[in-house]
Design a protein around this nucleic acid. Structure first.
Length: 138
DNA sequence: GCCAACGTTGGC
DNA sequence: GCCAACGTTGGC
């Protein structure tokens, strides 16, 4: 079981749109980075991902779950990239901001901080739990 | 809106 | 295969 973090600009695709997509979920496409693609391909049905709002908000707002493993991204003409499908699981009671992740030494090693341009990354379980708990405290 | 960091492209 | 030029992402 691997845990993940997915980045999206809420302008383009937000957690609320993800909620509206319902239990079948929605295609997560548009990834045009090889490292992110390689991560996408490793994702398995049932695995959970943090949903991060980049640019606007800069915070982890909720959790989604993989419902379909990597398949060719239809929006990519060259057929080089892949997409997955995810469905909404829950919103964090309190979004966990990039700032608070940076401040917490236990999780400041995350690629979210050290490799800010990567849009799909794995999260070790320890860090997952820390962030999850941060999101539970109102 | 700017720009640093990083990834990709293409000429050689 | 190197690397300069260019494009994109995302924090600020």
């Amino acid at each position: 079981m691997t845990y993940w973090l997915l980045k999206s600009e809420p302008d383009v695709w937000s957690i609320d749109q993800q909620i509206k997509a319902g239990s079948k979920g929605a295609v997560w496409d548009g990834v045009r980075n090889y490292q992110a693609r390689n991560n996408l391909k490793k994702m398995k049905v049932g695995e959970r991902c943090f949903f991060y709002h980049s640019n606007i908000g800069k915070e982890i707002v909720g959790i989604v779950e993989v419902t379909k493993e990597a398949f060719p991204d239809k929006t990519d003409k060259n057929n080089k990239f892949f997409a997955v499908q995810v469905r909404f699981v829950e919103k964090l009671e309190k979004p966990v901001s990039l700032e608070s992740i940076k401040k917490n030494k236990k999780i400041s090693h995350l690629k979210l901080i050290t490799q800010s341009r990567l849009s799909v990354m794995s999260i070790d379980y320890k860090s997952w739990k820390i962030i999850y708990n941060m999101g539970k405290i109102k």
